[in-house]
């Protein structure tokens, strides 16, 4: 009995000291980043540079993955729909699953591992090699000059990447469904257009990807800034960024889906 109480107490202390404390610190860090975001927009080239590293460099992986996910959806979806004699609904199946779920979520997961890890590693290394301290000593605020542009670069890139993923996916589904299998092209598009709603599906998808973008880049810049200034510390922080932001994306997706499509 006493040992169980001891164990619970140790666990509680750890949770409070480590997780709750870190969450509070991360929140304060986010507010600080938002407060010092002025230069990211006044000197927009700082942010443009980060959009290049977060967005443009993620293009290849996003476009190729989107195409393949769409093609697989086309194949699998056709197989299932043909059993019920409604293979013309393939366009609906492909587009709705992409626009509502797969586009934002898979693009966010890819973004977390491609751009999020890079952001953490870069900031962590800048900290480990005292570049952030040097900046601080030059009377330049590293949060305004280094953190905020990376944050906004990621946040602005994410919705565009998710839209590209979905568009490529729909194109992939079209290639397999219409060109390869021979579903009627007219009904493929018209059924899709009848079923996909702009407000309900497209806008909600964009909102989702924006939220994911905020979550991932927040985690990435925070983990980098908070990393112990050693090689081991930076590599562990990079891993943590990918793990935590992937979990955060999936959990947020559930919450957002429940709010948007179930009206909770």
């Amino acid at each position: 009995m006493g040992r169980i109480a001891e164990l619970l107490r140790a666990l509680g202390t750890r949770v409070i000291n480590h997780w709750v404390w870190r969450l509070g610190f991360a929140t304060r860090f986010l507010l600080l980043t938002l407060k010092h975001s002025g230069p990211s927009f006044r000197r927009f080239y700082l942010t443009v540079r980060e959009i290049y590293f977060a967005g443009v460099l993620s293009l290849i992986i996003i476009l190729v993955s989107g195409l393949f996910v769409g093609m697989v959806l086309g194949l699998q979806g056709y197989d299932t729909l043909a059993r019920y004699g409604s293979s013309e609904a393939l366009g609906v199946l492909v587009s709705l699953s992409l626009v509502r779920e797969l586009g934002p979520v898979v693009a966010a997961l890819l973004f977390a591992s491609r751009a999020g890890s890079a952001i953490t590693a870069e900031i962590g290394l800048m900290k480990a090699t005292e570049q952030l301290d040097a900046m601080e000593m030059m009377a330049v605020d590293p949060i305004a000059r280094v953190i905020a542009p990376r944050f906004w670069g990621g946040v602005l890139s994410m919705p565009l990447l998710a839209a590209l993923f979905s568009a490529m996916g729909v194109f992939g589904g079209y290639l397999v469904g219409v060109r390869l299998i021979g579903v009627d092209e007219g009904s493929f598009w018209s059924q899709m257009q009848a079923a996909v709603d702009f407000r309900e599906d497209i806008v909600n998808g964009v909102i989702k990807s924006f939220v994911f973008g905020v979550a991932i880049t927040w985690i990435a810049v925070f983990e980098g800034y908070d990393a112990p200034p050693t090689a081991e510390g930076v590599s562990r922080a990079t891993t943590r960024t990918v793990v935590i932001s992937s979990l955060a994306v999936l959990a947020l997706d559930f919450v957002l889906t429940a709010m948007m499509f179930r009206g909770l």
Partner: peptide, 18 residues
């Protein structure tokens, strides 16, 4: 990047969602 991203959004709004 921004142009093709916006293009994708436009494609989704017009061609997919009509």
């Amino acid at each position: 990047f921004v142009v093709i991203g916006m293009g994708a959004l436009l494609f989704l709004s017009l061609k997919v969602a009509n």
